[in-house]
Design a protein around this nucleic acid. Structure first.
Lengths: 228, 228
DNA sequence: ATTACTAAGAAACGAGTAG
DNA sequence: TCTACTCGTTTCTTAGTAA
């Protein structure tokens, strides 16, 4: 249920007890904490014992103020969260790891289609090398890969040509995490086909990545996929 | 000791498990949580049960990734802290409440000293009305008032004149929390005297506050003191 | 109405053990 | 090593009671 002392302290801060004295009874506090009256009362006692709040008990309740020590505690937790989420400010991303595998040769055929090429140039800013670099993800990366399903990414529309239909897909810009690859533009392409395997990603790039990086089947590669 | 589930989740986030899969054993995790191996192991199990992380258990440890649901939980806590501390961005302050009391007439004498007047004009931007408005703080405000002792405020130097010494003091800008008082400049003056009472504050202002606000002894007044 | 006890029940912890 | 149990011990919770 509750998460304890600091959760209680946080609620008090939310009620303004950092900068003014707050009149509250244990019963009211129990309601905001969603716990019993006894626990709410004990929380206030404990916080006072720990020097995190100051209390004045009067006939019809109590006046509560968070002390400097209490503020410091909240501030340190806040800073922890800032550290966590400051990483995400430069664009949310996931880091996938997998091994290079031979494609079925399909990639080259699809990527070469004029209907796709035009959209890649317009939406990604480059015309890909005819061929995809396929990565077989390690098991632990699959959960992260699944996160892409919840994002819309950069939409590539389907079209009809050569008497057949070509399905849509979505793309995410990515970076190859290897020395000297910072400047290589690339993107992950995820077809909208329902039966697409979860443990494979296809990477396109203006250059032949396999050659450029000297990759052979089975080599491990880390890729940072930009979500936002 | 520990603060439970979310503390564990937060540590995992700090270790990077929001954007990459993290290889960690229960023993290592126990070390970062400062708890027993059993508890660390159970935390991971529970977080997985709650759908906050995804795990892949391998022979020599486990791969951990925080799920979208887990990220949402952390984000909502982060937002709570942001709400708490965003209030403080426009200047940290404390809100004191007390009742108007008659001074001993000392205020008028001190404030009229040229040595003080010059500094008030330079450092506060106004020359105070000759007289202070004294507030007898309510008990529950004393703890907040004490917070001023930890701050340096705006230093007013002591000096010698008329064959005696006038001690130093520190000031904090403040606002009277009453309709139509937004534009009234005022400040709390706290003498450096060691025996100054904790439950009294003296307010100076370019205008006669007592008249301007129609105050009489015993009237309650709320004041926001700016700390930073 | 309050806050603060007490005591029984529930939940969490951690040493030891299995696999 | 590792994870995941069991189980005795400790801690936390909450209904009931007192002041």
């Amino acid at each position: 249920m509750s998460e304890g002392r600091v959760a209680a302290l946080r609620k008090l801060a939310l009620l303004g007890a950092m900068e003014r004295s707050l009149k509250i009874s244990s019963a009211e506090f129990a309601r905001v904490l969603e716990t019993s009256l006894q626990t709410a009362s004990r929380r206030l006692q404990d916080l006072e014992k720990d020097g995190l709040i100051h209390r004045d008990i009067v006939a019809d309740g109590q006046w509560v103020v968070i002390t400097e020590k209490g503020i410091e505690l909240l501030k340190s937790e806040f800073e922890e969260y800032q550290r966590i989420f400051s990483k995400m400010e430069g664009g949310e991303s996931v880091e996938l790891v997998g091994s290079v595998m031979s494609g079925l040769g399909e990639g080259r055929y699809y990527v070469s289609q004029e209907g796709y090429k035009r959209q890649f140039r317009e939406k990604l800013g480059f015309v890909p090398f005819p061929g995809t670099l396929n990565l077989l993800l390690r098991d632990h990366s699959v959960a992260l890969r699944r996160r892409l399903d919840l994002r819309s990414g950069i939409k590539i529309e389907g079209f009809t040509a050569e008497n057949r239909t070509f399905g849509g897909s979505k793309c995410f810009f990515c970076e190859i995490l290897r020395d000297g690859c910072d400047d290589v533009k690339c993107a992950v392409v995820i077809p909208e086909r329902t039966h697409y395997p979860e443990n494979v990603i296809e990477i396109i790039s203006p250059v032949n990545l396999r050659e450029r990086l000297g990759l052979k089947d089975g080599d491990e590669l880390r890729v940072r996929v930009i979500l936002s």
